[in-house]
């Protein structure tokens, strides 16, 4: 009997031929991938390629898929997969490190520029017929400012490189200090105190969850902005909303949130100094193709009894 795999529809066109070549049958899912959908379509699958299922990939799902050998994350973070439990059951969990790093890093720099230049609000005001918004909201140059990069993996490094032509000063914090031609490694407090823009590029782990909270916002300059393309849980969202409302910090550029999709009644939506996107920075055509190809190759490897390249559990 052919092995079956679940993959999201939008990844199908990049990987269908590959699976066919390996005689693996594809069942496509929506991009949402709710628990109900995954279980209805794939109780008998050997592999599941997953995005950001709203219910995660939990113990119950693992228990109901007895043939499962591999859970392959399209992307880097795997905090939505119960990877410890999967390991216990002998199921390999993989991710695709680096495949979307450039896309995420470009979006990060884009957000910094949008925040510096109030680009969203100015364009919206102009479309609404108010050309005078600019005189009440002067913009800033990024040049000569200090940018703090928290986390220096693939994405943090790409951000530093992209900023190298802008004449900014770069500070870097990383769990393990490294070397970089683009910036200076500093301690946590120094980075938060001195930066005009702070960009988060750390995974969501027990050590990093809510690691940016009241204390950090208090340390930040009142004129400083925070950008988050890591995971919503890294920031204590309640503390951030408070900091944004009281003027403790000047603004935020957010692609990720504690709860996704961001609830319609979230206070973040009401704040004028927040620029938001719905966790889409990694969803460029180029990144989708590369993550799909990498995730599929991991599934094929595990299903055929080979060692995965990017196993995380």
């Amino acid at each position: 009997m052919k092995a079956k795999v679940l993959i999201p529809e939008y990844a199908a066109k990049y990987v269908t031929d590959d699976f066919k070549k390996h005689k693996i049958e594809i069942k496509t899912t929506s991009s949402t991938q709710s628990e109900d959908e995954l279980l209805a379509k794939g109780k008998d699958v050997s592999g599941a390629m997953i995005l950001m299922p709203p219910d995660g990939f939990n113990q119950n799902m693992i228990d109901q898929m007895p043939n499962l050998k591999v859970i392959s994350r399209l992307g880097v973070g795997y905090d939505n997969v119960d990877y410890h439990y999967a390991a216990k059951k002998g199921i390999v969990v993989t991710n695709t490190p680096g495949a979307n790093a450039i896309s995420v890093a470009e979006s990060t720099v884009c957000d910094m520029l949008i925040l510096a230049k109030h680009s969203y609000s100015i364009s919206k005001a102009m479309r609404d017929g108010d050309n005078d918004y600019i005189s009440k909201h002067p913009t800033s140059e990024l040049a000569h400012k200090t940018v703090g990069i928290v986390g220096y993996g693939h994405i943090g490094q790409a951000v530093a490189k992209m900023l190298s032509g802008f004449g900014v000063k770069i500070l870097i914090w990383n769990r393990h200090q490294k070397q970089s031609q683009y910036g200076k490694f500093v301690d946590w407090n120094t980075l938060f105190q001195q930066s005009d823009y702070i960009s988060l590029h750390i995974p969501s782990t027990s050590e990093t969850i809510h690691s940016v909270s009241r204390k950090e916002f208090k340390m930040m300059k009142k004129s400083a902005m925070i950008v988050n393309f890591a995971r919503g849980s890294v920031i204590d969202e309640k503390a951030m909303i408070n900091a944004l409302k009281t003027g403790e910090i000047a603004g935020a550029g957010l692609d990720v949130f504690e709860k996704e999709p961001l609830p319609m009644d979230s206070e973040l939506r009401k704040l004028p100094n927040v620029y938001m996107t719905p966790h889409i920075s990694a969803q460029t055509t180029e990144a989708i193709e590369q993550t799909a190809i990498n995730a599929a190759s991991e599934m094929i490897r595990v299903i055929e009894g080979q060692r995965a390249k990017w196993q995380v559990n």
Binding site: S119, S123, M126, I134, S140, E141
Partner: peptide
């Protein structure tokens, strides 16, 4: 994508 001729008007440039 539209902006109202404000690119040159940052604090620093002003």
């Amino acid at each position: 994508y539209l902006t109202p001729h404000n690119a040159g008007h940052s604090y620093e440039a002003i």
